[in-house]
C-alpha cells in the first residue's frame, strides 16, 4: 500500500511462511500431524515462490517430515564423534537422522561476512505487539539479504 511494501519482494509470502512456522511450533506438542502439515505447507510455499529459508530456521524443522524439532520432545539430540565430530538430530516422528559437523572454524556460507552484499531494512514503523514477530522479522531481513546476494 505504501512505498515500503512494494519494495520488499515476496513480503506477503515471507509473512505467510513466518506465520506457518510459528503455528507449527504452537501445535508441536498438541498435535504432531497438524504441526507436520503446517511445516510441509511452509516448505511448499518456499519452493513454489523460490524464496530461501534461512539455514538456522531450516535446521529446526525435520528435513524429512517437516515437523518442528524440539530437543527432548520431538527430537533426540546427541553428540557424536565417530565419522566426524558433530551433533546428531533424530526426529522422533519419522526417525530420520541429520548430522551437523562441529569442526572448529567451520562456517556456513551465509554466516561468512563476505556473503552479504547489501542489507535492506524493511522494518515497519508500526510496533508489533508480540516479541516473537519482531525476531522473526529480523530473520526475514537476513533471509532476504542472502537471497538477493545469490541471484
Amino acid at each position: 500500500m505504501d512505498a515500503n511494501t512494494k519494495l520488499c519482494q515476496g513480503k506477503d509470502i515471507f509473512e505467510r511462511m513466518n506465520y506457518l512456522y510459528q503455528a507449527s511450533y504452537l501445535m508441536a506438542l498438541k498435535n504432531r500431524v497438524a504441526a507436520s502439515y503446517y511445516g510441509n505447507v511452509m516448505v511448499g510455499c518456499a519452493k513454489k515462490s523460490v524464496l530461501r529459508i534461512e539455514s538456522d530456521i531450516k535446521r529446526t524443522i525435520c528435513k524429512c517430515c517437516q515437523s518442528p524439532l524440539i530437543p527432548g520432545e520431538t527430537a533426540r539430540v546427541r553428540l557424536v564423534s565417530k565419522p566426524v565430530k558433530g551433533i546428531k538430530w533424530t526426529c522422533l516422528t519419522c526417525l530420520s537422522i541429520k548430522r551437523y559437523p562441529t569442526k572448529k572454524g567451520y562456517k556456513l556460507w551465509t554466516e561468512q561476512p563476505n556473503s552479504v552484499v547489501q542489507i535492506f531494512n524493511y522494518t515497519s514503523k508500526s510496533v508489533d505487539d508480540k516479541s516473537v514477530t519482531e525476531t522473526q522479522k529480523r530473520n526475514l531481513d537476513k533471509r532476504n539479504s542472502v537471497n538477493i546476494e545469490k541471484n
Binding site: V43, K63, C64, C65, L95, S96, I97
Partner: peptide, 8 residues
C-alpha cells in the same frame, strides 16, 4: 522404517 534424509 527409518527415513532417508529426503522429502517424504
Amino acid at each position: 522404517k527409518q527415513c532417508k534424509g529426503k522429502l517424504l
